[in-house]
Amino acid sequence: MAASPQQDDFVIRVRGLETRFGENSVHQNLDLDVRRGEVIGIVGASGTGKSVLLKAVIGLIRPAAGSIVVLGHDTARLGERDRRALQQRCGVLFQDGALFSSMTVAENVRLPLTEHTMLAPALIDEIARVKIGMVGLDAEAAPKFPAELSGGMRKRAGLARALALDPEILFLDEPTAGLDPIAATAFDQLIGDLRHGLGLTVFMVTHDLDSLAAICDRIAVVIDKRIMMGTLDSLRAESHPWLRSYFNGPRGRAAAVAG
């Protein structure tokens, strides 16, 4: 549970991944390694398949070719039980929280605990309360329904649910999209804190250059159907036109100054 990335302990290994929708191939021969304990940021232009990559890794999309190994398990070869066990070790935060709208925030967080563990209801209540507190939500938010929350609060509640089972890997789909800069910074801070506290590996799809600068150890750029891996500084030095306009455009420069 060390917070610093360990060199050869890969929690996600993607090899030769190919995903396609009909005739259209999104990724081709894509490789990606994620080390234990690191925060990896996935960036790329709209439509390059960042979210598709995330969905493929968490098993919502079947790849057309290639292998995806998560926590030592090849996701294509898992039986139903093993897949479910693996899913419990991964937490996912979807873009708008994807909270179950018929349940309160507390019930949303309790749900994975009641479904997957045999804990006493009182303990589950307390765990849910702690998780809701850990993501920075007031106790007043717990009995509310998702429709009654703001976008930022929904994201935090979604994060609490993703963390309910103490996952080893946390997947985030555009966690700061739609948040104001202060809330986005606070959310980055929260992810950073939780990562150190819980020893999480974070797989984050983002558009937010500030997030990249603030909390990501490495950055994976989805470009030309493949991954280009680097740090903020090394990618800034690359000559690919998209990378140049992304990192050296006005927003990129502002993030560099701030970062």
Partner: peptide
């Protein structure tokens, strides 16, 4: 992190 959250007042 956990103790700080656990010490928050209960709803």
């Amino acid at each position: 992190a956990v103790w700080r959250a656990a010490e928050l007042p209960a709803p």
